[in-house]
Each structure stands twice: as structure tokens, then as C-alpha cells.
Design a protein around this nucleic acid. Structure first.
Lengths: 167, 167
DNA sequence: AAAAATAGTTACCTATTATAACTATATCTA
DNA sequence: TAGATATAGTTATAATAGGTAACTATTTTT
């Protein structure tokens, strides 16, 4: 790989050695969105690997955890909770139901809505997945100390939890 | 909105009040990937709003900043720098070129590659965009103090910059 | 009873991202 | 120097995420 070298931006002919391989020193390093995207890419890559064996996607994992915590949750509440759109929930629950991990139970009280529950298989799987996910987080953030990891989590929560839109 | 109430997960009939609207208390709150995704969603939403006027997408912004910092950068180096695939760079540069913001200059030395440069218009725009992006970051993270914002940025960089894969 | 609202669904459309194959050049090697 | 190999960029294509609009079945409101 050739060495990065910064040059005047008014020079309009191709350079020979002006090839960066990092964004070091660029304003990009100061942008939160960029840093978030890059960090997320890395963490998700680890997550994908950890879940590959069980063929579980991030959204499926999130759904399973929420259903486990709130058995009987409705699809619309799941949508709100995870900030995804109702149509997305349909295919999400379909996939879980087809794999025998969750099931819809029509609500007697309001027959428009479905309570969603985990099956025994689903409960067993989510327990396993939670362990794998925790391990994956640790691997993806080996460069952080335990204290830093907690700090990061706290700061991220502070960002996304702040009311303002209803993101 | 009804109140969340947690119940035994072995109960297989629909509940009346088991509807959460947050993930508070769930293991999900402990997952880094989840926190990153939610925070990124929020920050990107602000970014989109800030850039709407100029119709600039996150990847276009990143490209412009890198080209500004490394005039004459090649497409393959841009791909490496931003961790995106070569085909993605093609359409990215196409869009910038069509809008008169950047241009390809065939490299004399290696006629396979193109040096990419900003036009005057591109240079003017990227200056403006950098200001907007910074402002957007601040708005998206109003819940953080200046110190916390810097901490967050530092921690994120530490995560994505650590060598291990070549993410 | 009629109108309006809600939960879920279906159909559709767009943007993002990854993969494979192609071209043109350049480099290696024998 | 000829032939094989590698590289930069491109095109085509497919998989997927994500979002909108419209429809059905219910429930609630008036």
C-alpha cells in the first residue's frame, strides 16, 4: 500500500502518491455519524459471525429478546418498541413462526391483535443467543476496557433515549 | 399507551397489559450492537435533515471530505478508505461528477486508474456541508455534554480503528 | 347504525450492498 | 519479448432493508 500524502486541493492533475488508506486527520474522524457507522459495521460483523450457526439476523434477535421479556406483546407494540414499521414486523414474526420459535395467539379481548409468545424451542434458543451475543460484543470491543465498554453503552443510550423525535 | 408489565413466559394466553414501548430492563439494553444501531438511526436522521437542502447522502458526504483531503485519490483507495466495495464507488463518483462536484482525471502513470478531484463548486459545497454536519451532530446529541460527546467519539474510534479484521 | 380508528396484512417501490463477470491496462516470469 | 497473472474500473445482477399505500377485519366512537 502506498503512503498517504496530503496536497493542495487546487492541483488538478493526478498524483502519484496521494493515496490514503485511512481517514486519519480528516474532518471525517470528527463526525459522529461516521464513527457510529464504522463502529456499528464492526460490531455487526462479529454479531453475524456469532449468529451464523443459528441463522439469526439482528432484527430477529431483538424481537426474540423483547418477546421473551414481554410474552404476549402485540405486533404493533413490537414495532414501536424496536422503532420498525408494522409491515417489517409481519415478515419478522412470519420467519420466527415458520421456524417454530414463536407463535401468534389471537387476542380474545381484541380480536384484531395477536399476542406473540415464544415456543419452548424459542425460549431455549434465545437463552443460548443472549450468551453468544454478549460474547460477540466482547470480541468486537477487545480494544476497550470493561469500564470503557460500560461508558460507551451509557453514552449511546443517552443519545438514542433522549426524547425529541420519537425515534 | 398501556403500561408495560412483565409476566411469566410460560403463560401461553394473550395478555391485556403486557405491552412495552421501550426496551428498558431488557437484556437488549446491554447489547452494544443494539445501542449502536439506535444511536446511529438518530444521528443519521438529523444528518439527512441537515443535508436535505443539498440532496447529499452520507456516503456522498464522506467521499467529498476524503477527496478534499486527498485530491487525486483513486477510486480503489476511496473504496478501501471508506470500507465500501468498488462498484459502489463507481455510482458514487458518477453522481458527484454528474452534479459537477468532482471529476475523474485519467492517471498518466497508470492509465487504468483515475485520480478524483473536487471542482470549484465541489470545494465550495464541501466547506458548507462540513459546517452543517457539525451542527447536525450537536443537535442529535443535545443530551450529551461537550466532554461526553468527545468521550463518545474517542470510544467509537477505538472500536472501529482496532486492527483485527481489516474493517 | 354509521363513521372513524386500529391491528395486521399485502403489494409495491426505492435504496443499499454484495457478487460475478467483463475490459483495459499493467506487471511479472520464464 | 510472449504469455500468464494481477489490477482498476465498470457493468449487470441479485439479495435485502426499508418505507408507503391501500386493503380486510375488527373495535370504538358518536
Amino acid at each position: 500500500m502506498t503512503t498517504p500524502k496530503k496536497t493542495s486541493s487546487s492541483e488538478q492533475t493526478p498524483l502519484e502518491e496521494a493515496y490514503p488508506t485511512t481517514v486519519e486527520g480528516l474532518v471525517l474522524e470528527e463526525r459522529l455519524g461516521y464513527a457510529l457507522r464504522r463502529a456499528q459495521l464492526k460490531v455487526f460483523k462479529h454479531f453475524d459471525e456469532a449468529m451464523r450457526e443459528h441463522d439469526i439476523r439482528p432484527a430477529q434477535f431483538s424481537s426474540l429478546v423483547v418477546i421473551e421479556g414481554y410474552p404476549g406483546v402485540t405486533q404493533s407494540n413490537l414495532a414501536q418498541t424496536l422503532s420498525i414499521d408494522p409491515p417489517r414486523v409481519v415478515s419478522l414474526i412470519n420467519s420466527l413462526e415458520e421456524r417454530g420459535l414463536a407463535l401468534r395467539v389471537r387476542c380474545k379481548r381484541d380480536r384484531r391483535s395477536h399476542g406473540i409468545f415464544l415456543t419452548k424451542t424459542g425460549e431455549a434458543l434465545v437463552e443460548r443467543l443472549k450468551g453468544l451475543a454478549e460474547q460477540s460484543d466482547l470480541e468486537a470491543t477487545q480494544s476497550l476496557s470493561e469500564i470503557e465498554r460500560r461508558q460507551l453503552l451509557t453514552l449511546l443510550r443517552k443519545v438514542y433515549a433522549s426524547e425529541e423525535g420519537d425515534d
